[in-house]
């Protein structure tokens, strides 16, 4: 098997890393969009995350990785329903993928040879309870992107085609990455993602040297390099698991809710989606913080840029980055209320 570059060995790119960690802690945040030029470790980070995540309990051979025997879909025809540990699914969605392959379709082989109408699950089934990763999302065909976002939103894949009528759970964290220089993502898709981060190459030479040194060390001997980082990896994994438990015990004071509402209103972000995401992200961040018992303004401020920057009403020709605008508004809003 191909070894992945360890997540903890990625130099810098803290915002991207924490966005990914947040979404691993609380999948309902709604996915991460990573935009940046090539060579910034986008794909590396996502693939590394897969190796990092704790295993989940699922019914053996269940096509949608159900956690309980009662949830396995009928069409799977599972005789034995035994629980087992499987790695968190991380499914790669290749660019040239067809709609059949994504949603699942009539099993042609069975239809032709046995005259049976059977459902062959697609990638959405495979990604249930895990992550779905699309590299170069801005090059993916529009109708597939639409379909994915619909499913990601509803948590359910509904197949009505070729005489089939099948529905199954499809709850996954959507992670998209792309390079804006090669074409932008349609604006209506942007705010469907929970978090958005921009990544760039480190400008600091010492940091760049470290990037190359580590990557080179990995390329030369992946095995040894991974072992070297084993400890950091398991520490991080432990921290994520702790945060996943902790998150349910956190209080959200009214003051924090008010902060969130004020901030979103001041930024004029569309709809309630921004507020909800900001709340969830702040909560995940507080859980990650480990010492906090409440979700505070500091937590909100830490995640606001990545939760809101892609939701602002945007003049396509205005070049100020969303990030900057969020920061500015945050300063204004919170300076006056203090």
């Amino acid at each position: 098997m191909n070894l992945n570059f360890p997540f903890t060995a990625i130099v810098g790119q803290d915002e991207m890393k924490s966005a990914l960690i947040m979404s691993a802690i609380d999948p309902t945040i709604g996915g991460v969009l990573i935009f940046g030029s090539r060579g910034t470790g986008k794909s590396t980070a996502v693939r590394a995350l897969a190796a990092l995540l704790p295993p989940i309990t699922a019914i053996k051979n269940c096509p949608v990785n159900s956690s309980e025997a009662t949830q396995t879909p009928n069409w799977a025809n599972l005789k034995v329903k035994r629980k087992t540990k499987i790695p968190t699914p991380v499914v790669d969605l290749p660019l040239g993928v067809t709609e059949d392959r994504v949603t699942g379709a009539l099993d042609i082989e069975k239809a032709l040879t046995k005259g049976e109408k059977a459902f062959q699950p697609g990638l959405l089934a495979k990604a249930n309870r895990g992550f779905l990763y699309i590299d170069e999302i801005n090059l993916l065909e529009d109708h597939i992107v639409d379909l994915l976002l619909d499913v990601a939103q509803s948590g359910e894949n509904l197949v009505e085609r070729e005489g089939l009528s099948v529905r199954h759970a499809a709850r996954f964290v959507l992670i998209g990455s792309g390079n804006p220089e090669e074409g932008e993502l349609r604006p209506q898709l942007l705010d469907r993602f929970g978090l958005a981060v921009d990544v760039g190459n480190p400008q600091d030479v010492a940091q760049r040297i470290e990037v190359i040194r580590r990557r080179d060390g990995f390329d030369q001997n992946p095995q040894a390099f991974s072992e070297e980082w084993q400890k950091q990896e398991s520490n991080l994994r432990g921290a994520i698991v702790r945060a996943q438990h902790l998150i349910h015990r956190l209080q959200v004071p009214d003051q924090t809710l008010e902060d969130i509402a004020t901030l979103c209103a001041a930024l004029g972000s569309d709809g309630l989606r921004g507020e909800l995401t900001l709340l969830r992200a702040a909560r995940a961040y507080a859980a990650w913080d480990n010492k906090a018992s409440d979700v505070t303004r500091n937590h909100v401020m830490a995640v606001a840029p990545m939760a809101l920057q892609h939701r602002l009403r945007r003049d396509p020709l205005d070049e100020t980055s969303g990030r900057l605008r969020v920061h500015r508004v945050m300063e204004q809003v919170f300076a006056s209320s203090k």
Partner: peptide, 25 residues
Amino acid sequence: QLVLATTIPIQFGLDDPRWGLFLLH
């Protein structure tokens, strides 16, 4: 040599760390 591999591509306007790695390899 590591420093060299990192900085030479940047001087020619190639920002991606990949080029430095390729140079090393």
